[in-house]
Amino acid sequence: MTNIENNDFEFAHKSETVDHYSGKSYSYGQLVWHRFLRNKGAVISAVVLIIIALIAILAPYLSQYSPTTPYPNQSNLAPGVNGHWFGTDNLGRDIFVRVAAGTSVSLRVALVAMAIDLVIGTSYGLISGYFGGKIDLFMQRITEILSTIPMIIIVTLLVLVMKPGLVSIITAMMIVGWINMSRIVRAQVLELKTSEYVLSAKTMGESDIKIIFSQILPNTLGQIITTFMLSIPNAIFLEAFLAFIGLGVPAPLASLGTMINDGYTQAIVYPYMVIFPVLFLALIMLSFNIIADGLRDAIEGS
């Protein structure tokens, strides 16, 4: 019999293994944060938004010019003349200060409206999806009816009933702005409520409220955050559109939409009057969209 020694055989594709375990453990939130920081586009967009927000907050207080006070002797000045970085409009108002004030108005309208929509839409979707049956059927019919009404009609009716301004715009957004959020949350709940851990919680006798807030809601937060971030630029654009067609904040207040509306008629002669508010609006919307994509990738672990 042939003697077999250990040296006669060796493992194919033998390779050394390196242990990469660093000894650190991260929570889910920390993992999402680290993934987000690796997305350079999202980080740059976040920095741009912070800079724009700081300009919107500080510029009206640091400048010697008021965003609402006209200065007839300084009308239609080009950018850089007499200390006006973005120039002045036909009433002599500083465009830089007005863009900052308009950005603040647009951001406040969007954030307040979408924060309320986040609460309404999430709650509506959780209730509709979890309880199902006749409750779900009734609640979905309501969303279908509201979603068929154009936003412009709602805003116009509100302006006729209420005074034009921030309250009427925010109210209009609240009426239908939560529908998309509720549908997304409902779809997530319909999928999650048949999972094993939810069925186990029901078997153990946990209440519906506890199951919703401890089992289902935490597992929908990723989609909720992403949808919320994507909804903000849509709300900003809607506010700008309403202001552009004359349904925005009343004079002498300004939003980015009202500035675009005021400037586009003189865009050929004084293009800077419309370029700067359009640029700020585009940067805000683009930044929010990139951040939302970055958050979605970080949450999904891609």
Rank of each mutant, 00 (worst) to 15 (best):
D8A: 05
D8C: 07
F11Y: 06
K14W: 11
V18S: 10
H20W: 07
Y21E: 14
S22E: 08
S22K: 10
K24I: 12
K24D: 12
S27Y: 14
Y28K: 12
G29Q: 11
Q30F: 02
R35M: 02
R35L: 03
R35I: 08
R38W: 09
K40N: 05
V43C: 01
I44V: 07
I50M: 10
I51T: 04
L58R: 11
L62D: 01
S63C: 03
Y65D: 08
T69D: 09
Y71A: 13
N73L: 14
S75N: 15
S75H: 15
L77A: 10
P79R: 15
V81D: 07
H84R: 10
W85V: 03
G87E: 04
G92Q: 13
R93A: 01
R93T: 03
D94N: 12
S104N: 11
S106H: 00
V109L: 12
A110E: 11
V112W: 13
I116F: 11
D117F: 01
G121F: 00
G125Q: 00
S128G: 02
Y130V: 07
G132P: 02
L137R: 13
F138T: 12
M139A: 08
Q140T: 06
R141H: 11
R141L: 10
I142G: 11
E144F: 14
L146G: 12
S147P: 06
I149L: 14
I152P: 06
I153P: 08
I154P: 09
I154E: 13
I154W: 11
V161N: 07
V167Y: 14
V167Q: 14
S168H: 02
I169E: 05
T171R: 12
T171I: 14
T171G: 09
G177T: 15
I184R: 00
R186C: 00
Q188D: 00
Q188H: 00
L190Y: 04
L190H: 05
L199R: 08
L199S: 04
A201H: 06
A201S: 09
M204T: 08
S207A: 08
I212E: 02
S214W: 10
S214M: 15
I216H: 01
I216G: 00
L217D: 01
P218W: 07
T220M: 03
I225A: 07
T227M: 05
T227D: 00
F228L: 10
M229D: 06
L230P: 09
P233N: 10
P233S: 08
N234A: 08
N234R: 09
L238Q: 07
F241D: 07
A243F: 01
I245C: 11
G248F: 05
P250I: 06
A251Y: 11
L253R: 13
S255I: 10
L256Q: 03
M259Y: 06
N261Y: 10
A267H: 08
Y270S: 12
Y272R: 02
Y272V: 01
P277C: 10
V278K: 12
L279P: 08
I284L: 06
N289E: 03
I291V: 15
A292M: 04
G294A: 03
L295Q: 04
